[in-house]
Write a protein that binds this DNA or RNA. Structure first.
Length: 532
RNA sequence: GGCCCCUUCGUCUAGUGGUUAGGACAUUAGGUUUUCAUCCUAAAAACAGGGAUUCGAUUCCCCUAGGGGCUACCA
């Protein structure tokens, strides 16, 4: 078998769609598994939808997610004068995606070749005429289709119109008899009636090719062996197969992926919440979770295998096109959240802390002179000073890891870190009634807090750690017959101000003796204020 | 409308001509000597419907229904 070569071919229309990510991932897995090539090709032939900067963003997000790609502008085509590709991220120093808008001369050449071969023709119909035609056809309940007005123009007519600078497109002269059969890697045999096929535009009047032309030409020139793409392309397979046939090119294998759906089973779109990979990134989803989750949307190892957590490496080994599903899959955020939480829980603590830094800074809890938090963790970060904005106090990275450690198992997304830990950075406000456990009276709460204050005061600063505090306080509670819940709940709330939080001793350790006492005092004062 | 694709718990899915139809997320209940979370245990939860083939169909075939995609000088 020829060396496997696959491509991911997004359009730079704004952002990488989560469905696009899965398509890219499947292609990438297939390439890596077969020691083949994974190529990126930017399909920017629609100038109306082109968004400046989208390509750069796409490359950046692919980089972030960890899908590396191969090959640069190495294709040799001596008889075509045009740029094969242009560097996008030069400092990356590796490979660059192909960009279709830089390859116009190539498509032009093949469009002309198709005309010469009688497989395509010039069409001078105006968009207005086509629109009217379509309206009439729809009104008469006919399938909208080009009526072939320009199909048989004489060479003289064509030359005349070209000379007069009439705008033209080049249309596919699709044979109107027989059937076209595709043997899809995922769906098996799919047959189409040729007479139902429209004569699609291959080359637009603005000098750009349409998808159908550019795609087939590029897949051929780039020697793509397997086309793994979304199911939305299945219907245009006859056009593509016909092009391969008339051009005399070898036909690659096709695998049409099921679509990703929203909760209501419609196509996943922006109305249903975030679908851009960058949105998931901003919210604090980890690449590993996103990748793991995406893979499982439409694929699984089968054979009764019950593993759900996969590293990329494992996926490269076990992935197979044959086990990809045929039915669309709903994108279930809840399961993603669970997976992301799993990856967060299993993350190395200093890595996780570093990932949390931007969120702590963005939400105004701390500030730092460092703004670049790239991996691996540098000495610069380890030695960095962070100022707590509320108190002006300066802390180091290690102190921040302690805070993150306390919330690690509670976090589903990195973005939650700020809300979860903000009581470490500013004194809490005590919600009315929260300081008491069950049906404690205010006097009881105050008594217990006073008791804690008195005893914690006696504990040496150096012993102010979770283990010692826990042992000591529990002993005292027992000795004084105080009740664990009646003591520890008020203490925990006094320190955190929250309904739910880490345990009181853990918080006390991080806060230190002084702040712990201040907060106990504050809590007592609050209750007394209510009492008076 | 036409063409094409699809159909197992709410969701992602495993699975086979004969299974107690398995797992995960979510849900519910209980446990893990204060809360939440984690972790553990348990429960509830599915073969779209109708035919045909067969001793026997969730599994093979047909039809219906439902969902999705395409139907542009968009990709």
């Amino acid at each position: 078998m020829d060396k496997v070569r696959v491509r991911f071919a997004p359009s730079p229309t704004g952002y990488l769609h989560i469905g696009g990510l899965r398509t890219a991932l499947y292609n990438w897995l297939f390439a890596r598994q077969n020691k083949g090539m994974f190529i990126i090709r930017i399909e920017d032939t629609d100038r109306k939808r082109f968004v400046p900067g989208a390509t750069e963003k796409l490359i950046e997000i692919l980089d972030w997610i960890g899908l590396d790609y191969d090959e640069g502008p190495y294709l040799k085509m001596s008889n075509v004068k045009c740029q094969m590709s242009k560097p996008i991220i030069q400092e990356r120093g590796k490979y660059r995606p192909y960009i279709q808008s830089k390859r116009l001369a190539i498509y032009q050449k093949y469009a002309q070749e198709l005309v010469k071969k009688g497989a395509a023709y010039y069409c001078f119909c105006s968009p207005e005429r086509l629109e009217k035609l379509r309206q009439v056809q729809i009104a008469n309940k006919l399938p909208p289709k080009y009526d072939g007005l320009c199909r048989n123009l004489s060479q003289k007519e064509i030359n005349d119109k070209l000379k007069k600078n009439f705008l033209f497109v080049i249309r596919l002269k699709f044979p109107q008899t027989g059937t076209t059969v595709l043997n899809d890697l995922i769906r098996g045999k799919v047959a189409f009636n040729n007479s139902l096929q429209d004569e699609a535009v291959l080359f637009k009047s603005d000098g750009y090719p349409t998808y159908h032309l550019a795609n087939v030409v590029d897949d051929y020139l780039m020697k793509i062996t397997h086309i793994i793409r979304g199911e939305e392309w299945l219907s245009s397979i006859p056009k593509h197969l016909f092009l391969y046939q008339v051009l005399g090119w070898p036909v690659p294998k096709f695998a049409h992926l099921p679509l990703l759906l929203s909760k209501d089973r419609s196509k996943l779109s922006k109305r249903h919440g975030d679908i851009a990979v960058e949105d998931f990134r901003a919210k604090g989803y980890l690449p590993a979770a996103l990748l793991n989750f995406s893979t499982l949307l439409g694929w699984n190892p089968g054979k009764g295998e019950e593993q759900e957590i996969f590293t990329l490496k494992e996926l490269v080994q076990t992935f197979s096109l044959e086990k990809i599903h045929k039915a669309g899959a709903i994108f279930d955020l809840e399961k993603l959240d669970w997976l992301n939480g799993w990856y967060i829980r299993h993350k190395n603590l200093s890595d996780l802390t570093k990932l949390c830094l931007p969120y702590l800074i963005r939400t105004g809890l701390i500030k730092s002179k460092i703004s670049n938090f790239q991996f691996p963790i540098s000495k610069q970060i380890l030695n960095a000073k962070f100022q707590i904005i509320q108190t002006g106090e300066v802390v180091n990275f290690k102190w921040l890891t302690k805070i993150v450690a306390l919330e690690q198992e509670r976090m589903k997304k990195l973005s939650e870190i700020a809300e979860l830990t903000k009581f470490f950075f500013k004194e809490p406000n005590y919600e009315r009634g929260l300081l008491g456990w069950k049906k404690m009276t205010r006097e009881q709460i105050v008594d217990n807090l006073q008791f804690l204050k008195k005893n914690l005061f006696k504990i040496n600063k150096n012993n102010f750690n979770k283990k010692y505090l826990e042992k000591k306080i529990l002993e005292l509670i027992k000795k004084n017959n105080l009740g664990i819940g009646e003591t520890l709940w008020p203490m925990r709330v006094a320190l955190s101000g929250r309904v739910a939080s880490p345990g009181p001793f853990e918080i006390a350790e991080v806060l230190g003796k002084d702040k712990t006492l201040v907060r106990l005092n504050q809590a007592i004062k609050t209750i007394c204020l209510i009492l008076s």
